[in-house]
Computed example of a mutant assay.
Amino acid sequence: MNRLVIIGASGHGKVIADIAVKCGYKDIVFLDDNENVKECAGFLVKGTTADIKEYQKWDFIVAIGDAVVRENIYKNLEKHSYKIVSLIHPDAVISRRVNIGKGTVVMAGAVINSDTTIGKGCIVNTGASVDHDGVVEDFVHISVGAHVAGTVHIGLRTWIGAGAIILNNLNVCTDCMVGAGAVVIKNLDQPGTYIGVPAKQLVKE
């Protein structure tokens, strides 16, 4: 059909729109629940998520950074059998032995190496890398310039901050937030926020 609906008219949505154009989409519209937003990346914002039903025959991708919101919208699309697509920038480097779930976006300069599984609704952002034999569960965001070494398992909805590093053979549990520039040298077994070098859990007082 060559028609795409991007849900989320933000900076992230702009980047996804550029990738969509490079992937051959001609007709692109945005939906966003902020009714004051009328345009994004040169494309019209045609309505809110309440208008999804008007685009039943279009392809969809969710361009929202917040993992919980992204997951909820994704599951609503999935429930109603809308066509959710993945978008991969042509300048990403991806092994022939990688599985990528629906609704995932891989940005320019990203590298994903052999025998790695990327779940659905994930973001592998600009210049990020995921090395061999990794598992990245659904709705994870690996931010700009973050690097995940070999044989790492990252749990559902986890966010790896810009420039963070995850050393090899580690597990990062569900619902973690690894701060920008942090270096993870041991398993992260409890949900929470981890910062620093080496990364330690941020404890709220």
Rank of each mutant, 00 (worst) to 15 (best):
H132Q: 12
V62Q: 04
H89Q: 09
I142S: 03
G181H: 07
V106T: 10
I94C: 02
N72Y: 02
K200L: 08
K53E: 01
G127W: 12
M177T: 15
V68K: 14
S95E: 07
G161F: 05
C173N: 10
D66C: 00
D33M: 09
N168R: 11
I84L: 01
I64A: 03
I88S: 03
G150T: 05
E137D: 11
I16S: 03
V183I: 15
I84H: 00
S129C: 10
S114W: 04
V144R: 02
L170I: 12
H12S: 06
I160D: 11
V178K: 10
I61R: 02
A50H: 12
Y194W: 11
A67L: 01
A128Q: 11
A199G: 01
D51F: 05
I142R: 08
K79E: 12
Q56I: 15
A110T: 06
H141N: 15
E54T: 15
V29W: 01
A17W: 10
F60R: 01
V69E: 15
A180Y: 13
I185N: 01
A164R: 14
K120T: 13
K102G: 10
M177R: 12
T104P: 03
I166C: 01
G119C: 02
S95T: 14
D27A: 07
I142Q: 02
K22T: 08
H147L: 05
E35R: 12
K57T: 14
L4S: 10
N169A: 03
G101D: 00
R70G: 08
V144W: 07
T158P: 09
D131R: 08
H89S: 14
I16Q: 09
H147D: 04
V37W: 05
N76V: 13
I94G: 05
W159N: 09
T49Y: 03
G121L: 06
Y82H: 09
G8H: 08
C176P: 02
A162T: 13
V178C: 01
K26I: 12
A110H: 07
D32V: 02
R96F: 06
A50M: 06
D131C: 02
W58T: 08
P198D: 03
Y74P: 01
N187D: 15
I28C: 03
M177C: 07
W159H: 15
R157A: 03
G181R: 15
A164P: 05
A63M: 00
V140R: 07
S143A: 15
V197W: 07
T151N: 12
Q56F: 06
K53P: 00
S114C: 14
V85E: 14
H141T: 15
E35A: 08
T193W: 01
V111R: 04
G24S: 06
N72K: 15
I19H: 07
F139M: 04
R97N: 11
I100Y: 02
T126P: 02
I84N: 00
I154K: 08
I166V: 13
T193I: 07
A41I: 04
H153E: 11
K83H: 13
L44G: 04
G127I: 12
